[in-house]
Design a protein around this nucleic acid. Structure first.
Lengths: 149, 149
DNA sequence: CTGATAATGAAAATCATTTTCATTAAAAAT
DNA sequence: ATTTTTAATGAAAATGATTTTCATTATCAG
């Protein structure tokens, strides 16, 4: 696969130009399982792409989110965090440690969850005439390490 | 019930003084079903309590959250929103319109949800040694009005 | 290869929230 | 009831995340 332009076609209709920052940010996010913030992405890229601007990171993240190539999360307050959205990555949710901020992805009980979510969405659509497009489930608590402290 | 000091006892152990801003903010939140932001609370109180400071609103909201008297929510980005937490108010979740920001409380399927949540929490505790303390479920989409626009 | 203009980066602006600090006011002690 | 202690307040400044502005640069259509 021609790395340089692997995602290029997905940009059709959204923007015209395939640039270095866009390639770099998408590549970085596609290669990590972490939920990076804009500033973390900026710092990580400074090595391979000195001169990149934080502004561009924000703009690119917005763009990538609009195209559906990444997902944006706002856990409690603080910075937004971003994760690569791949078709072969299963739908999942997050387990967030309120002490250290550690985030664990989980997709257990996905079937049952999906069933309940579908049923709820259908019900809510009828009751409130609300068109459900997305949902979000999060668990908050303490990770193993933080339970000891 | 002596309105002025209705909630006073709940402050024992947390703070020493029961003040006008605390009474005013708690009263306002207890009387609305809306999910108000700090600034909205500040604006609403300016009428009945001119001179109140936005700083105090933030500090009081933090305090009330710590005592468990209110809950804080961060829907996607923007301001945090607060809601009065009453024992007789059922556990509920939110339906958020991504276009106009309208928020609908819902508690349908609470039993099934609770069952799934409990099961998940137990499972996650075992698998990741994670101590689940809280969870959050949200649906995003378009409200009836915004579907037309 | 070249021109049109989308994308960039630096700096300034914005927005929500927090901190600082001198003043005020609960409520404990007198 | 009055004084004293110190927690709580409000104004202003500081912070942190994100967005906007704008002159410059670089992509890519012709």
């Amino acid at each position: 696969m021609p790395g340089q332009h692997r995602w290029r076609k997905r940009f059709a209709g959204h923007v015209c130009r395939w640039t270095m920052p866009r390639e770099a940010i998408l590549k970085l996010l596609s290669q990590t399982t972490k939920h990076l913030s804009a500033k973390e992405i900026y710092s990580a890229l400074l090595r391979s792409y000195p001169g990149i601007g934080l502004t561009t990171v924000y703009r690119t993240l917005d763009l990538l989110e609009k195209t559906g190539m990444i997902k944006k999360f706002n856990f409690r307050q603080g910075e937004s965090r971003y994760e690569f959205a791949s078709e072969n990555k299963p739908h999942h949710h997050h387990l967030i440690c309120t002490s250290c901020g550690k985030i664990i992805d989980y997709s257990d009980f996905a079937d049952e969850e999906l069933e309940l979510v579908d049923k709820s969405a259908k019900h809510l659509a009828e009751k409130y005439k609300f068109l459900v497009q997305d949902h979000n489930i999060e668990f908050y608590g303490l990770c193993q390490q933080c339970q000891k402290d």
